[in-house]
Amino acid sequence: MAPSPAPVRDPGLQPERTALSWRRTIMSAVVASILIWRGWFHSLNGGGAGGALAAGDSAHMVGLGICAAIACLTTITLVVCAVVRIRLLHAGVAALESEDHLGVPTLILRTASAAIVALAAATVCALVLGM
């Protein structure tokens, strides 16, 4: 009896499920980020409608703009993490089982966690500035 060929993919679709999980995570990050952007645009329109801008208003706008930029950067970071990880997952089951492959997730997951902490910091700042 001939030995069965080495599997190219996992019968339980584990890598695919993990890749989809990363994609869902990106979507969640985009939603959170868009809401912070909405707050910034809102401050721009709200300030512009009243005519003359008070000094405090423009400071709020700059602050909220920085929060929006941080939110954007953290989302991009998460997308990069996901893209790198999904590429590794799609390299095949043999690559997943190899020993030299194991170092990668730690850095990716750490970066993802750090990005979310940064996004949370941006959220807290946006909440305070939005008052």
Binding site: S28, A29, V31, I36, G39, I116, L119, T123, L127
Partner: peptide
């Protein structure tokens, strides 16, 4: 992320 989005 849902908590962050919910807060905002």
């Amino acid at each position: 992320l849902a908590l962050l989005a919910g807060a905002v």
